[in-house]
Simulated scan of single mutants.
Amino acid sequence: MLTFSGSLSILMGVSGIAQDSLFATSSRYTYWFDLTTWGVLHLVVGVLLVITGLAVLVHKSWGRGAGAAVAAISLITQFMFVPHYPAWAIPMMTLDLLILFALTRFHIETSGSR
């Protein structure tokens, strides 16, 4: 899920950098950045999501913690992006919450037969 979310964020970042007409712009929003800044932000977060997703897949010890941290950052950036494109940001926030839930669950492994 991390690599999927990262790939989607990369696509959103490229779209923002290309000054696509997909996004609504408003100067009355508290977290207002130009589309290029949003594009770079989504691109960087997307690359970090893909890297941590691959680390989780190959069972790196730092993968789960870094993945949870980057998913939380992605959740915050998507929340700030809601006024620009809510049809995209709200499902991405849901995906980030599912990622956080999956990565922060506590697993108890037993070595016994039970």
Score class of each variant (00 low, 15 high):
V70Q: 00
T104P: 01
Q19T: 05
S74N: 13
V58R: 15
T25C: 09
L48V: 11
R64L: 08
L98S: 07
V50Q: 01
A68D: 08
M12P: 00
S21A: 12
T110V: 09
W62S: 07
L98A: 15
A18N: 06
A89W: 04
G65L: 12
H84R: 13
F106T: 09
A71C: 08
A55I: 07
K60R: 14
L95P: 01
T77Y: 04
A66T: 15
R64S: 07
L97Q: 05
G63Y: 03
H107Y: 08
D96T: 00
R64P: 03
G6F: 01
G67S: 06
I73T: 13
W32H: 09
S9P: 01
A89P: 07
S26W: 10
L75N: 03
L2E: 03
L75V: 09
R28F: 13
S113E: 14
M93W: 00
S111I: 08
Q78W: 14
L35C: 12
W88C: 02
P86D: 01
G16R: 02
T25G: 05
G63F: 04
T52R: 01
Y29P: 02
A102V: 07
T30Y: 13
F101C: 09
I51P: 01
V50M: 06
S113A: 15
T94L: 14
F79M: 11
W32M: 07
D34C: 10
S61Y: 08
L43Y: 02
M80W: 14
V58F: 13
L95H: 00
Y29F: 14
G53A: 02
V82Y: 02
I76S: 06
A89S: 15
A71H: 01
F79P: 04
V70I: 15
W62A: 08
T30V: 14
D20I: 08
S21H: 12
F79Y: 11
F23M: 05
G65E: 10
G63Q: 03
L97A: 15
T104C: 12
R114N: 12
A18P: 00
E109T: 12
R105Y: 09
G53T: 06
F101Q: 06
S5K: 04
S113D: 14
T30C: 09
V44T: 13
V82L: 05
G16A: 07
L57C: 09
S5D: 12
S7C: 10
A89N: 05
G65T: 15
I108H: 14
T36Y: 13
A18Y: 05
G53Q: 01
T94M: 12
A72G: 12
Q78S: 14
